[in-house]
Design a protein around this nucleic acid. Structure first.
Length: 168
DNA sequence: CGCTTTTGACCTGCGC
DNA sequence: GCGCAGGTCAAAAGCG
């Protein structure tokens, strides 16, 4: 495998009906820096991240006892295909695991995380591909309306970590 | 002691 | 109407 390769981030627009809602999506909120931050944090190897933008304007909270009246809540979904051996990609936010279910298409279970913050209902789910267990799919749902709790490490820090051979 | 993880139960939507 | 799949909650346990 190739050594430290440049981080590759692919943006996939899955807008089938080309809804003229948000063509530029909200990547602004999800600074790539944050992603890199987490992607490289644990895995010093090359990190291949793929971003998938999903815009659903009618997502029902299946299984929820509440949100019985919600119907037209527009939620933004971003799927990140990250090549990493670890599924715990710390993006700087505080996540609390609230569930885990086994997917039929995958041999590995899917983990559900929630952002622990006052008023921040951002959800995130991590799933590993059964075909390529090296590939981790991180799906973000919602947008953070608060700064990172951790000190946003600069790119230099990340690079430093990349160069720093983590003692396994 | 507080927070996070774990795990089973429960609910909802969809397909047949 | 029933079964399946996916998603969430809640209680208990575990850890710093």
């Amino acid at each position: 495998m190739a050594p430290m390769q440049n981080n590759q981030m692919l943006l996939l627009g899955s807008s089938s009906s080309s809804a003229a809602s948000t063509p530029s999506l909200n990547i602004e909120n999800f600074n790539s820096q944050n992603f890199f931050h987490g992607a490289n944090k644990k895995d010093k190897m090359k990190v291949e991240t793929r971003i998938q933008h999903h815009e659903s304007n009618n997502i029902s909270e299946g299984g929820g006892k509440v949100t019985k009246g919600d119907k037209k809540i527009r939620r933004h979904r971003f799927a990140f295909h990250t090549r990493s051996h670890v599924d715990i990609l710390d993006d700087g936010y505080r996540w609390r695991k609230y569930g885990q279910k086994a997917v039929k298409n995958s041999k590995f279970p899917r983990s559900y995380y929630r952002c622990t913050h006052k008023g921040c209902n951002v959800k995130k789910q991590i799933q590993r591909l059964s075909k390529d267990e090296e590939v981790v799919v991180t799906t973000y749902e919602g947008m953070h309306s608060h700064p990172l709790e951790k000190t946003t490490d600069s790119f230099e820090q990340i690079l430093k970590q990349l160069q720093t051979p983590a003692p396994s």
